[in-house]
Design a protein around this nucleic acid. Structure first.
Length: 503
RNA sequence: GGUCCAUUCGUCUAGUGGUUAGGACGUCAGGUUUUCAUCCUGGUAACAGGGGUUCGAUUCCCCUAUGGACUACCA
């Protein structure tokens, strides 16, 4: 068999949705798995919907995700150009071929006329379909005489080129994910192939390009399934071999009904886009929310596909190895933001303290703290397993950098006893006597003291934590005081005693 | 409305003509942690409904219901 060639073909109409990233990913995995080629083609035939920055956004998103394009606008390739507006000149002749062969015709109906027909049909509870049923009553090169429609062309009247859908024919085709499907052409309409503005529609452009670029497998979203019969007919009309098709199920809302949208993300506080979108109505991105691209991709890969084993954590290499189209599900997947966080937690745990320290150092710098790497790595080691994102580390460690500004009133009420101040004063002198201020040294000194006095460990330690942290949370107490040092520890105890006792 | 597609725990899913219907996220409980979190252990929880076919259907077929996509000179 010839070399596998697949393409991801988005429209630059705004930021790329994570559903789009998943489509790109599956194409990419399929290509790599089969030693094939992954192509990025920009489908910008609708000039009215063009959005500046979207093309770069698409490329940046793929790059961040670790999806490597083999042929595309930046990469070049034997089938360039890879942007449809740059290929404009090649489509017209293919529309003409279809006309010459009798598979297409000119239509002069104005958008207003068609709109009127549609609303009239709707009033009767019917759907207006521009096909064999009404074709010869409308304004086109089939209903009009050759003299008439040629005159219109000569006058420069706007027109489109429509596909001439067969009247009553069963179209059978196969989808790699869904199997055999068939539909009767009487329910299909004469789709516009070539627009009056001189641009092809998606239906013409994508298949001409797929054919010219020798695409072997079309892996795209389920929203294209209804137009597959048209595409199959088009391939037949040209006498071309059609590629194999695989229609991917959609990503659905975490709750409620319908497909995942930007609104869901806004409402529930999770991103629906890979990267921050800075234009117009801005949108948050996974990258900016602190997700690792590996976790993001891993999460997306498992939404609609599964390996058939119980493995859940996959590197890109592993995904490539394990991927196959026949393990892609048929039904839409509800997106679960909680599971996305879990994936990031897993990836964060697999990073070394050194890597995390490097990442967290940027955070600290922004806050004006400068800590050397050795101490930072120690700190990371204390809180690493408690967090899912680098940015969470701050919430877990803020009290390492500054004494508490207040003391949790509920906890004080619950844990601060009449003699807590006296005992903590004793504790100060115990700590004062520890020269080597390591966690083990201070711990053993304090435990010996508590035992010798017959104190209650719990009440001492809770009060201790209160004055050091400000509330009852955080890592092991002796790890904390070892990190902040003897001087600061004692200062905090003294400050805590005086401030809490005063109340 | 019409056409097409889909339907296993709350969610992502595995699975088979005869299984204690498995895993993960979430959730709940217990344990560890003198705090909180993590972690560990355990529990909860599903074959949409109705007809067939069959000795036997979650699995195969049909119908219904529900969900989704499409129904543009948008992709």
């Amino acid at each position: 068999m010839s070399q596998v060639r697949v393409r991801f073909a988005p429209s630059p109409t705004g930021p790329l949705h994570i559903g789009g990233v998943r489509t790109a990913l599956y194409n990419y995995l399929f290509a790599r798995k089969n030693n094939g080629v992954f192509i990025l083609r920009i489908e910008d035939t609708d000039q009215t919907r063009f959005v500046g920055g979207a093309e770069e956004y698409i490329m940046d998103s793929l790059k961040w995700s670790g999806i490597v394009v083999d042929e595309g606008i930046n990469e070049g390739g034997d089938y360039a150009p890879y942007r449809q507006s740059d290929r404009k000149h090649i489509y017209r002749q293919y529309a003409d071929t279809l006309f010459d062969k009798g598979y297409a015709y000119y239509a002069f109906d104005t958008p207003e006329e068609l709109e009127a027909l549609r609303s009239a049909s709707e009033k009767e509870g019917k759907t207006f379909i521009y096909n064999a049923g009404v074709r010869d009553k409308l304004n086109n090169s089939i209903s009009l005489s050759a003299v008439e429609w040629n005159a219109k062309l000569d006058r420069g009247e706007p027109y489109v080129i429509r596909f001439k859908m067969p009247q009553e024919e069963e179209i059978h085709f196969n989808d790699l994910i869904r199997g055999h499907i068939f539909v009767n052409t009487s329910t299909l309409d004469d789709k516009v192939l070539f627009k009056s503005d001189g641009m092809p529609t998606y239906h013409l452009a994508h298949m001409v390009d797929d054919h010219m670029m020798k695409i072997t497998h079309v892996i795209r979203g389920e929203e294209w399934l209804p137009s597959l019969p048209l595409h199959v007919l088009l391939y037949k009309a040209y006498g071309w071999d059609a590629p194999l098709f695989a229609h991917l199920p959609l990503l659905l809302k975490p709750d409620g009904k319908g497909k995942l949208s930007k609104r869901d993300g806004d409402k529930m506080g999770f991103p629906v886009f890979p990267l921050f979108w800075p234009y117009g109505e801005t949108a948050k991105g996974y990258r900016e929310d602190g997700y690792y691209p590996e976790a993001f991709i891993n999460m997306l890969a498992l939404l609609g596909w599964n390996p058939g084993t119980e493995q859940e954590i996959f590197s890109m290499e592993e995904l490539i190895n394990a991927f196959s189209l026949d393990r892609v599900g048929k039904s839409g997947s509800r997106f679960d933001p909680e599971k996305a966080k879990w994936f990031n937690h897993q990836y964060l745990q697999r990073r070394t303290n050194n890597q995390l320290a490097l990442e967290f150092r940027e955070f600290l710098r922004a806050k004006g703290f400068h800590v050397d790497m050795v101490r930072l790595e120690m700190l990371i080691g204390l809180v690493k397993e408690r967090v899912s994102f680098v940015k969470d580390i701050w919430e877990q460690t803020d009290f390492f950098f500054k004494a508490p500004e207040g003391y949790d009133p509920d906890m004080v009420k619950k844990r601060w006893q009449a003699d807590s101040g006296r005992m903590l004063n004793e504790l100060i002198s115990i700590l004062q006597g520890v020269d080597d201020f390591t966690a083990t040294a201070t711990e053993s000194a304090v435990k010996t003291w508590i035992e010798s006095k017959g104190y209650n460990t719990g009440s001492i330690m809770n009060a201790f934590r209160l004055v050091i942290v400000g509330t009852l949370r955080g890592p092991h107490m002796f790890d904390i005081i070892s990190w902040i040092g003897k001087g600061d520890t004692i200062n905090r105890i003294e400050k805590g005693i005086s401030e809490i006792s005063r109340k």
